[in-house]
């Protein structure tokens, strides 16, 4: 590009620059631990073993406790989501209430986050099963739990 082009008053290329990005007022989300600490998902083999032994509730609690909500790594989050979906789909409708009864409030919120995440990425027959989960969990944890799915910045 010649020098005269740079000075061309009709040049509009600079308009493509989003100046807001370079403002020091630009809000950066705070991340005190940098996403390095906190759980990074559970060991898949361990969970699958629990499921095969028929310890569904244990498997569910274990995956929810080690849910990588803090984590910024896409792959880690994706793996955890797949595993939790697998656990949720393996628990039959009549076992759900038992499982939910063993969760504390925090884990219920985590579970609700993964139910909604599951709705986003459906596979064969998953949504119908997750809707049953949703109904049963909502009866216990109320609308507050759903609000937190949307309000929290640490997502599933």
């Amino acid at each position: 590009m010649s020098k005269s082009d740079d000075k061309d008053p009709s040049a509009t290329a600079f308009r493509n620059i989003n100046v807001d990005l370079y403002s020091d007022n630009n809000f950066k989300e705070d991340d005190p631990d940098g996403g390095t600490t906190g759980p990074t998902g559970s060991d898949e083999n361990e969970i699958l073993l629990l499921l095969s032994q028929g310890k569904q509730a244990e498997a569910l609690i274990s995956v929810l406790k080690s849910a990588p909500l803090d984590c910024k790594n896409h792959q880690v989050k994706e793996n955890a989501r797949n595993l939790i979906q697998k656990v949720l789909l393996s628990i039959k409708t009549n076992q759900m209430d038992d499982c939910i009864a063993q969760l504390d409030r925090h884990l219920m919120d985590v579970l609700m986050k993964y139910i909604y995440r599951g709705f986003e990425i459906p596979n064969e027959g998953s949504s119908g099963h997750l809707l049953v989960w949703h109904e049963k969990l909502y009866n216990v944890s109320g609308v507050g739990s759903i609000v937190r799915v949307f309000a929290d910045s640490k997502r599933a």
């Binding site: 919120d109 609000v147 309000a151």
Partner: peptide, 27 residues
């Protein structure tokens, strides 16, 4: 109170420890 339907209390006499309650209601 925040938009996550919670209500929280910080106590300055106890080293700013925070007690949180996540409710089942709308915010």
């Amino acid at each position: 109170v925040g938009h996550n339907s919670s209500i929280c209390i910080a106590d300055s006499l106890k080293g700013n420890v925070v007690n949180r309650l996540f409710t089942e209601y709308l915010p």
